[in-house]
Amino acid sequence: MKSPIFVGYLTMVRKELVRIFRIWSQTLLPPVVTMSLYFVVFGGFIGSQVQPISGYSYMQYIVPGLVMMSIITAAYMNTVSTFYFAKWQHVIDEILVSPMPSWAVIAGFVSGGIIRAFLTGVLVVAVSLFFTHLVIFNILILFAAAFLTALLFSLAGIVNAIYAKSFDAISIVPNFVLTPLTYLGGVFYSIHLLPPFFAKLSLANPILYMVNAFRYGFLGVTDVSIGRCFAVIAVFTLLMLLWTLILFRKGAGLKR
């Protein structure tokens, strides 16, 4: 016999899976198209003019960062949209009236984000094989970095959806926080190539640590020590988890 809470959790995960595949042209296709363009334009056209970084061709260097970028977006977009819709249509009430504890509900939503992030990551890596060959330095680090980052941004999606009072509010974070931080997060360059001031400034950007940890898993090169990368990711993930739990406990934005 399965535990009731586990059955509830599996019900949520099943719904997420069905949804991700049913609307695959909105969930899985866009990152494949966008990232192909990045590979062609940045990796191909521009990259051919750029010096190798840390012994890797520019194309090889930017692939991990671009994969991470799509993982972040996929994780975030999945929870923010399912959660916001559930809240907006009051479908979330179906779960809130049930005896499922908050942590299990959060786990259900987060799993959806992580599953979509994982599928997206695999697809984008697959597309990158048309442009460069795959190097894997340490698969454990690679998966750990991807998992924690997906977890962090799935939680961030929930937090944003809880606060959001309109559809517009769910795109504020991606447009004004996520995109700038990702572009400045060392996806396209090593911070050692920046003037010292901007190199220092980049260290304040949490996404830099995620991109670098992930790139280390592929290529074995990183701008910051790998230990520090994971420390930063872990701290942010923990804080976000705490924030989500507190919001759920209070019923903020969910209960009347």
Binding site: K2, S3, P4, I5, V7, G8, L10, T11, M12, R14, K15, E94, I95, S98, P99, M100
Partner: peptide
């Protein structure tokens, strides 16, 4: 059936 799931019934 999904509602049943939330109550722990497969």
């Amino acid at each position: 059936l999904d509602q049943a799931g939330y109550y722990g019934i497969t």
